[in-house]
Design a binder for these strands. Structure first.
Length: 581
RNA sequence: GUUCUAGUAGCUCAGUCGGAUAGAGCGAUAGCCUCCUAAGCUGUAGGUCGGAGGUUCAAUUCCUCUCUAGAACGCCA
């Protein structure tokens, strides 16, 4: 479906052409001066340069060929050469009807593309903490945005389950529980049992072992050794590893469930293991792999690099794999399973060099077609008021489950709650507060986390949006069912209603932009604006008491449309709607 | 040291393929509930868009330099 911007741009382009100005001068944008007009075209400035004519004159010519077109309420030239456009109400209503009769509300559906989205990236044996929050929230939203545009989107958690952290945990276990059978060479997985682990111990071991390895060189070596052995399927370590994974995944899933974050696949680095031999083979066949300082590496420099991009390490000098190895092997795996048009990595921006190397290597080795878009949808960090990654008051890292608990508790304490909100609604409000508060910031930027701002019931928040939704639901519930069924847009009665319609018919532009830039904040902004417009509309008009039946039916229809648009955007952000609050 | 990213209202952030008077939330301040949920609505104040040059009819947006902060820079992920 063509958007209003497309239609206007086409009309303006034709008008420029009719007046013998060749070139795409007709681009129409949403007005930067809503007090003057709804849409604007600045093409006469560009044309003026090429045709050496005053922009005002060109604009006048263009406008004169369009002035009688019925879709315009008015189209006129302003000062140096702006073309200001307002659409007639009849045409706005016609477009809106077209948009609302489409189940996707005018959002262009591209059904022949697949995007794999890699988010989560958590390490097993390590509790989820606040550092995992952004990638989970942003990734989930990007997946849903892709789906909203008709694409197939595959979400993969890509667990860190096959690297040094595993070696560290097991190394620590060998010291704490030296008697465990799995540490002996005689361990037989068919006969011997693995000790039962509990998740709290597991969560405590990793930070402990990690700290220990930074202070104790021998321990570090031991962990590296165990990692290498594990990767070679040492029976005891491998069996223990399987147990760790099992326990850890259950715990992780709990946290992700609370955030309403769902993965289609719980693959990890380990699952790419089968593709490592193929990776090595391909790299060798292409003569890319060579030995350097004992490690096996691939050059990924390009001619116009400003700075030396170091080679990518495929095999460490002790023959162990690193994350570049598993990331590349995973690309082979994903290409085999999904033939994606794009793979998006929602990972901390500090890893951009790594992904640059991996992508170059993948393209160089032909692991994916040249057309496959490998994108590092980098996310910023959540910082404290000191501008450094967020820490608790005690200086530790806040666990995700603790974080969610705090937000729920604060929301529950809101005085408006006592009468209205049950526990389940508070949970939804808390998650909405967290997600909206995160997504409203641009994906790639760090932001300063302020617990009061997140939990505030006021202002530009998830709670505000859900509150507006609850009001809409309440009105609809109180109306006669017959009226709701017969609701229909007869007319536009106010500027606010006009603005609401303009907002709704531009949903496609918002979704397209969000998809193209992997940036959910545009949807957040649009959603908030629509909610504000509804609120204004709500205060200006009393829908239930309205006596003019045509007016009332128009207003009811408008509310139904707003609700649908809001639900669509909430879905794309991964925020659950509430019926009431 | 090199490279990258950022610097916009008191605070937290949007915006920018160059366009007309730079936006929002919080905070400050003045109002609005006999009426569909006041977790709401309306108004006011608050800015030389880090600084200096340049390109342009037009620069917060592009280029150069500079200051400040953060990040990355081969065997962790």
């Amino acid at each position: 479906m063509k958007t209003i911007i497309d239609i206007l741009t086409a009309k303006l382009n034709d008008a420029f052409k009719t007046n013998n100005y060749e070139g795409p001068f007709g681009t129409v944008n949403i007005s930067s001066r809503p007090d003057l007009c709804q849409f604007q075209c600045n093409g006469s400035f560009a044309a003026a340069k090429i045709y050496k004519k005053a922009p005002f004159v060109i604009a006048e010519e263009v406008v004169s060929t369009l002035v009688n077109d019925a879709i315009f309420k008015n189209i006129q030239v302003e000062k140096p050469g702006f073309i200001n456009i307002n659409i007639s109400d009849d045409y706005l209503i016609a477009i809106l009807k077209e948009v609302t009769s489409d189940p996707h509300m005018g959002i262009t559906q591209i059904t022949d593309e697949t995007i794999v989205i890699d988010y989560g990236g958590a390490n097993v044996a390590k509790p989820l903490h606040i550092g995992h929050l952004r990638t989970a929230i942003i990734g989930e939203s990007l997946k849903r945005i892709a789906r909203s545009t008709g694409r197939t989107a595959v979400g993969d958690v890509h667990l860190g389950d096959w690297g040094l952290p595993m070696g560290l945990v097991i190394a620590e276990m060998t010291e704490r529980y030296p008697d465990w059978k799995c540490f002996s060479e005689s361990f037989d997985p068919n006969v011997d049992k693995i000790a039962t682990l509990d998740v709290n111990t597991l969560n405590e071991i990793y930070p402990f072992a990690s700290k220990k390895s930074s202070q104790n060189e021998d321990f570090k070596l031991k962990a590296q050794n165990i990692t290498a052995k594990l990767q070679n399927h040492h029976p005891g370590y491998y069996a223990l590893w399987q147990e760790i994974i099992k326990i850890s995944k259950i715990d992780m899933k709990k946290s992700y469930d609370r955030l309403n974050v769902e993965f289609d696949y719980w693959y990890g680095e380990y699952d790419s293991e089968d593709y490592i031999p193929e990776l090595i083979e391909v790299l060798n066949d292409n003569n890319l792999l060579y030995e350097s300082n004992g490690a096996m590496v691939v050059d990924v420099k390009e001619d116009n690099d400003k700075v030396d991009i170091p080679p990518i390490i495929i095999k460490k000098s002790n023959n162990a794999n690193v994350y570049a190895t598993t990331d590349l092997a995973t690309i082979i795996q994903r290409e085999k399973y999904f033939h994606p048009n794009g793979i998006w990595y929602v990972v901390d921006s500090r890893q951009s060099l790594h992904f640059n190397q991996v992508f170059r290597c993948a393209k160089k080795a032909g692991l994916v077609p040249q057309t496959t878009k490998l994108i590092h949808a980098a996310n910023g960090t959540i910082n404290g008021s000191d501008g450094k990654p967020y820490k608790t008051r005690e200086g530790g890292i806040m666990q995700l489950s603790t974080f969610i608990d705090i937000i729920i508790e604060t929301i529950s304490k809101n005085p408006n709650n006592e009468i209205n909100c049950d526990n389940d609604i508070n949970k939804k409000l808390a998650i909405a507060a967290i997600k909206f508060g995160d997504l409203i910031n641009h994906r790639s930027k760090d932001y300063i986390f302020d617990i009061d701002k997140f939990t505030s019931p006021e202002g530009k928040t998830g709670v505000y949006i859900l509150y507006m939704l609850a009001r809409m639901n309440s009105i609809i519930k109180k109306l006669d069912e017959e009226k709701v069924n017969n609701a229909m847009l007869y007319n536009i009665y106010s500027d606010t209603e006009r603005d609401i319609i303009l907002n709704v018919i531009q949903l496609n532009d918002v979704f397209t932009k969000s998809f193209n830039e992997q940036a959910p904040n545009y949807i957040c902004e649009n959603l908030y604006q629509l909610s504000v417009l509804f609120s204004k509309f709500y205060h200006d008009n009393h829908i239930i008491k309205e006596a003019d039946i045509q007016k009332q039916l128009s207003w009811i229809k408008l509310i139904l449309i707003i609700r649908e648009a809001i639900l669509k955007q909430l879905y794309a952000l991964g925020i659950e709607a509430v019926e009431a609050m």
